[in-house]
Simulated assay, not measured.
Amino acid sequence: MIRRAKENDIPQIIALLRQVLEVHHNLRPDLFRTGSTKYSRQELRDIIANPDKPIFVYVDGTATSQDRILGYAFTAIQRHHGDNIITDITTLYIDDICVDADARGQHVATRLYRHCVDFARANHFHNVTLNVWEGNDAALAFYRAMGMGVQKTCMEQVL
Rank of each mutant, 00 (worst) to 15 (best):
M1F: 04
I2W: 02
I2A: 05
I2L: 12
R4T: 08
A5I: 09
K6G: 12
I10M: 07
I10N: 03
I10C: 01
I14S: 00
I14C: 02
L16T: 14
L16M: 06
V20W: 15
L21D: 01
E22F: 03
H25W: 01
N26L: 11
N26P: 02
R28C: 11
P29I: 04
D30L: 11
L31G: 14
L31M: 07
F32V: 03
F32T: 08
R33A: 06
T34W: 09
T37Y: 05
Y39C: 01
Y39V: 03
Y39R: 08
S40A: 04
S40V: 00
S40M: 08
S40Q: 13
R41L: 00
Q42N: 14
I47H: 00
I48H: 00
A49V: 04
N50Q: 02
P51K: 03
P51V: 00
K53G: 01
P54Q: 01
Y58K: 02
V59P: 04
D60I: 10
D60V: 03
G61W: 10
G61Q: 13
T62S: 06
A63Y: 02
A63G: 01
T64M: 07
S65L: 06
S65P: 03
Q66W: 00
D67V: 13
D67Q: 12
I69F: 03
L70H: 10
L70S: 07
L70E: 08
G71T: 00
Y72S: 10
Y72W: 15
A73G: 02
I77M: 09
Q78K: 15
R79G: 08
H80C: 05
H81D: 09
G82K: 13
D83L: 09
D83M: 07
I86Q: 04
I86N: 12
T87M: 09
T87E: 09
D88N: 15
I89K: 14
T91I: 10
Y93S: 05
I94W: 00
I94A: 01
I94P: 03
D96S: 01
C98Y: 06
C98E: 15
D100V: 02
A101L: 04
D102G: 01
D102K: 14
A103Q: 10
A103N: 12
R104I: 05
T110I: 12
T110Y: 02
Y113E: 05
Y113D: 09
R114V: 02
H115V: 15
H115E: 15
D118Q: 04
D118G: 04
D118H: 05
D118S: 10
A120W: 14
R121W: 10
N123A: 08
N123F: 10
H124M: 00
H124R: 13
H126M: 07
N127C: 03
N127V: 08
N127I: 05
V128T: 06
T129N: 13
N136C: 11
D137K: 04
A139H: 14
A141N: 09
F142N: 06
Y143Q: 07
Y143F: 01
R144Y: 00
A145T: 15
M146H: 05
G147D: 04
M148P: 08
V150Y: 11
Q151N: 11
Q151W: 14
K152G: 06
T153P: 11
T153N: 09
T153M: 11
M155P: 11
E156T: 13
E156L: 07
Q157Y: 15
L159K: 10
L159C: 07
